[in-house]
Structures are given as C-alpha cells and as structure tokens.
Write a protein that binds this DNA or RNA. Structure first.
Lengths: 314, 314
DNA sequence: CTGAAAGCGCTTACAG
DNA sequence: CTGAAAGCGCTTACAG
C-alpha cells in the first residue's frame, strides 16, 4: 500500500546477494564525463548489467575540493559495491591498488600492467600501427602524434625519447610502440620524422593546442595522428581557425569513433562493446566462474574525409 | 596492511549515515547515455555530490530483456540509495510514483506535474517563446517544430491539436505553450503556419526523419525549431543530404547547447548547472534542511550560424 | 501455519 | 584503556 517498503541496504547485507557494481574512473567523477568515451563505456556496461538487475555505482578519484565534513579516504574504499570495473588506469595509480585491496571481484578494461584479473582490451599497438601505416601509404613522411597522457602527472608538451619510454598508461604506451613499429618498417625515425605532443588531458582544447604546437615545427607535419577523437576534433578546430584545408594541407586521424566523429578517420574502437564485455566478465566472476583471462576485442580502421594524400613537396 | 577492509554496506547500515544518491532515468539505463544531455547532467550532479563523499548510483527503468533469475520489480524499488534525483519524467510515469513511494529525500529536475518536492527547472515556455520570436523577427512565417516525445507512448509523426493538448512531459508541454504564445502574438496559428513533428525518441535519426517529413509539407517551412540539439543535428543532417543551404534555404535552431553544437543556434540550457543544483538541493534535504521549493535557472538564446533570414518568396 | 530468535558485518556505548 | 554486548533493518531457519 504505497508504504515505505523495506530497506535495500539491510536486505542486501542479510541475504548476501550482490546488487551493485562499481564503475571506477581514475579522475574525479565530474571530469570523467567530459569525455564522450566515458558515456559510451557506461552505456555498454549498463546494457549488460541491468539485464540481471544490478545497479551501476559511479566511483571517482578523490575530489580536490572535498568538504571537511566528508568521510576520509578515497571513494573507492567506501563504495558499497559487490564488484569493480576499473578503467584506463596508469600502472602506478594508487587508486587502482586501493580498489584491488578491497578484494572484490574485479574486471579491468585497458589493463594496466599485466595482472591476473579478467580484462577487456583492444590490440592498441596493432591499431596504432595500422593507422600510421595508412598515413605512410598515402605518402605522409612528417607525422605529428597527439598523445594522451603518458604518466599520472602529464607534461603537456613535446615528448622526447626519455619521456616516451616512461609511459605508464598501457593504452598510450602500446600505441606509441605501434607507431614506432610502423616508423621503423618504413625506415623513418622518431623525433626526426615524427614528433609526439603529450596532452594534459583528453579534451578538444588540448588537441587544438597540440596541433598548433606540432604545426609550428619544421619540417611541418602533413598529418596528425590523434590517440582520441577529442584530440582529433581539437586538431580539426585548429585547422579551421588557421584556415588549413583538411585533408588537402593537413590530414587528421582519430582513434575512437565517438558518435560525432563524422569527419575523422579513426581506428574504430568498440567502446560500447568494451563496456558490455566488461560487465559480462564481472557478472561471471560474481557467479564464481573462473576468470577467463583477457578478452581481446577487434578494431577496424574506418576511413573518412579528414585524411588524404600528402601534399606534393613544393 | 593491504587487507580486505571493512564492509561499507554494513557500516552504512549501522551508522545510518547516507552514502549514495540515486540518479533515476525514465528509460532503461543503456538508452539514457545515447543522449549527450545525460552525460552533462551526470557531470553536474557528480561535481556537487562527490565533494561531500557521496556516490552516484545510476538507476534506470526496468529492462525489457530482463534475465529470469534477476530480482523482481523496478530497479528504483531496490536501489540501495539514501536519496533520489529524478529527471525528465512524464507526469504519469509509474516509475516516478514508484520512486516517490520509497519516501526518500528526493529532488526533481524538469518537474512533472507540480509536486511539493524540491525541484530544478528552466522556464521552458519562455525559452521556447524567445526562440520562435527570434525566427519570426527574421521573417520566417512557415515553421516546423521537431518535438520531443509528448507521451509515454510517443506517436512518431505529425502532432495535431488533440495530440499536442495531451503532452505529458512538462518540458515538451511548456515549450509547445511558449511556441503557441509567440505564434499568437504574431497573428499566426498552429497547423496553418506551424506544424509539429513528434519524435519517437531523442536521436539524430529521428530529427532527420522529422525534418524530411516537415520539409515535404506545403507550404514548406523555412525554419525548423528543434526541442533538443540531437533533433537539430538530425535536421542539419537532412539538410546536408538534401543539399539544402543552411541557413540560406533552411534555418535550424536547437535547444540544449551540448558541446558539439558548433553549428546550431540553441536556446542555451544550462544542463551541467541543472545537475549541480539538483545535487545541491538533495544534499540539503539529506541534512534535513527544509525544501526550498523550485529553483528556476536562467536560459539564454545563443545565435550561431545555422539560422538566418527567411528566403524571399519567389 | 504463526511467531520469536538468530545473524549478515559493522560501530558505538557501556561495563569491567 | 580494553573487551563484550547491543543493535542498524532485514531474512531465514527453527521452535511452538
């Protein structure tokens, strides 16, 4: 009779049945959703998880403007969840270790450092290599890379050999390795033929800044290879402001295939499916099924209008 | 020492301190995030809530492909939360009533039917009236409206007087009222000078379909007024495919100002702020502070490149 | 079939 | 200062 109903917390405690899955982001929550990829991943995870009646609790890193009255410790330590999905962490992120310390069933997407946990990933190195080989086949010989952060404290500028070798995010590290393989196979070399801009965060603004910085280098890059669609959109914005023809004067390649990527040529990353499979693996773990190791999802290079042949040298 | 740590569920039960806020969507969760507005709202709510150490649990409507082993009842009845933020519900949505039946502190965004709950809203009627008056001032006399759903079971086609009068979503109802006021003030009339397409859902595909349908009417509309940016993007996609000059042959106006709305002329709806204020009101309610009634956020018409003067009659 | 008791894992207040 | 007991709101298994 429209009454209060029973307290789900108490019920869950008594019955011991799992109800809630924690989706953990490395940064504070309010930053997580500035990235359209985050929404796609949630969509996939939600799809799988809600079929079985689970809820999805969003868990972020500690907020920097925490209220004094708020409970101590990272949200990940206090989250009332029955399992974790961890996403895009750096190898040495203390938050990642704090989550593992809860010893709950856990699935990792974009696995930092090989762990024994079930995980979901793409062949980042292979996809990156493909994308660069595609540009090389179009005749591009001066490449600019718009990179995601390489370490927890990103540098926000050109990243030389030393900095590149210290990448702590698996996805960025693997992609750099893939680009490197493609360069080497073509007889090209880092720093001489390809420069890397390391962004401070995955935003359009950083993509724009990086594109401007790379464009100012000599020899000038004829193509920009972005590790995310956000960064690629930034590069397109830079090109538009500088009145550069795309792809006539500058080719731009993205990576993720977010819904608004009508103008880029991204290596299609199946982010919704990544979320879905992460949810599926976690539900299997909650049922006590043995961990199936890592699930590798296929990628695909989708060619669109923002990339084309290198301009003829004048 | 890296040990298991204590069970947050039990702690929360014993201490009685609130930890988790439920963000409730009218549809199934995996649909919620196909709308970029959803991500903006989460961003705002997360920003406010995480400062005080609360987690955000995403709660959707019942999934249609529910697993037989899943617990019965809507997720909203089982969600282990201490308060609700309800968003964009139709007046008669049973899920809305089910959430209220939990008798938890609750805040409503885009309030369905005046309730006594704290709420956050914009002046939908005023913003809509502004947008249409702007088009009328540009000389447009034949208007097409791309409307959001009017009832729980949307019709997906032209909506005549009878259907328009039965709108059950507050935002859509108010916006129709605002358009009506602008029409009346200009001596124009619904159905003769302005047609309404009711979409089946808030997607680019529906916007495209509606734009095509409205464009096929006689007299042809010279401007399309969309109730969301998604629908406006669809109208732009239709114009691009039909090789119509925007705004030369067709003006397009959006509503939300999502991040990718570079080409529309939306009435700026402050969605992040809406999420933030909803979070703030709910935290106040959890502290036992008296409900402050409804908080009305300002809107602003931002004019961009997709709208211009009506083409001269030939 | 109905009703009182035990216990999920914790925290808090109180007795020793 | 330390340690045993009570109790958060439920559900389940057991006694009557």
């Amino acid at each position: 009779m429209g009454c209060t109903g029973s307290d789900p917390k108490a019920r869950s405690l008594r019955r011991g049945t799992p109800t809630t899955i924690g989706l953990v982001y490395p940064s504070r929550l309010s930053y997580a959703f500035t990235d359209p990829m985050a929404a796609l991943f949630v969509q996939g995870a939600a799809e799988e998880v809600e079929r079985y009646g689970y809820g999805l609790l969003l868990v972020g890193g500690p907020a920097d403007d925490l209220d004094p009255a708020a409970p101590r410790g990272a949200p990940v330590q206090r989250a009332p969840v029955d399992g974790f999905i961890l996403q895009s962490f750096a190898d040495d992120d203390p938050l990642f270790r704090a989550a593992l310390a809860r010893r709950l069933p856990t699935v990792v997407a974009d696995d930092p450092a090989a762990s024994e946990l079930p995980c979901v990933a793409i062949d980042d190195a292979g996809a990156a290599q493909n994308a660069l080989e595609y540009l090389l086949a179009l005749g591009h010989r001066h490449i600019g890379v718009l990179s995601l952060e390489l370490t927890l404290d990103a540098s926000g500028g050109l990243a030389g050999p030393e900095r590149r070798s210290r990448a702590r995010y698996r996805a960025a590290r693997e992609r750099l390795a893939g680009y490197g393989r493609a360069l080497e196979a073509a007889g090209l070399a880092w720093d001489r033929d390809a420069l890397v801009f390391e962004s401070l965060d995955n935003t359009v603004a950083e993509g724009k800044r990086g594109a401007a910085l790379l464009w100012a280098q000599r020899p000038r890059p004829s193509a920009l290879l972005a590790m995310s669609d956000q960064l690629a959109f930034g590069a397109l914005a830079f090109a538009a402001e500088a009145e550069l023809a795309v792809p006539g004067e500058l080719s731009v390649v993205g990576f993720d295939d977010v819904p608004s990527a009508a103008r880029s040529a991204p290596a299609h990353q199946p982010t919704i499916r990544k979320g879905r499979e992460a949810g599926r693996l976690l539900l299997a773990a909650l049922r006590g099924e043995p961990a199936p190791g890592c699930l590798w999802l296929p990628t695909e290079l989708i060619v669109r209008g923002s990339s084309g042949p290198a301009p003829a040298p004048c």
